[in-house]
Amino acid sequence: MSDYVAGMSSDAKNSPKRVVFVTRRTSAHVRSVDEEQVQTYPEALFRAALAVQVLVIALVLLSLLFNAPLEGIANPTVTPNPAKAPWYFLGLQEMLHYFPPIVAGVLIPTLLVVALVVIPYFNINIRPDGVFLKSRRRNLTVFYIVAASLSLFLWFFDVYVALAPTLMVAGFMLIAAFSAPQSPDRFRRYLVSRPVSWWIMTWFLLELAVLTVVGTFFRGPGWSWVLPWRS
């Protein structure tokens, strides 16, 4: 049952062993095996410390070379144009440009947080197989409807900034839908095997990145388009 060897200075493997009770109806089938383990100290701790140190060195160098911004003293009577939120909220501020505050400022962030929280609790997110591999017809129909209505919605409200990543993801999904799992192309094989949760998250990541970059670098006075390299 156990191969424990008592002794204070033993270097022998002393990992606990698994015990399996096999009932009559099932046959024994080993799904996972013990794998090599190492001591947290020093193996993990030193690696972690190394990673952190490299990061800190980078941050220290950054701090030596670039000064944190400091503008004039706060003045409620002088509004800078544009007044921008911190960069990680600029995606939301970009949305605020298209939708009323109740939608862009309250509804979207709330939905986002809720969506993030429930991710591990939905079976669909757990399923690891490619979205168009099982029940292909139904999934294709759902995909067409969702992609078209989302695109139309964004197009209707002139949200081209958010429309572009949507169309991009939809395009890749189309490629995935019409590629064989054994396609000779590696990239296609990769796309085919992506589950639905992967596609949704990728769409979200793209939207977040594009909106944030646009809000940070491409928006000037009156939230109009500017080119960052031309100012």
């Binding site: 193996e43 030193f46 410390a49 190394l50 140190q53 490299v54």
Partner: peptide, 9 residues
């Protein structure tokens, strides 16, 4: 990690 850790320190 040991040697790189020494250097990075």
């Amino acid at each position: 990690p040991i040697r790189p850790f020494g250097i990075s320190s």
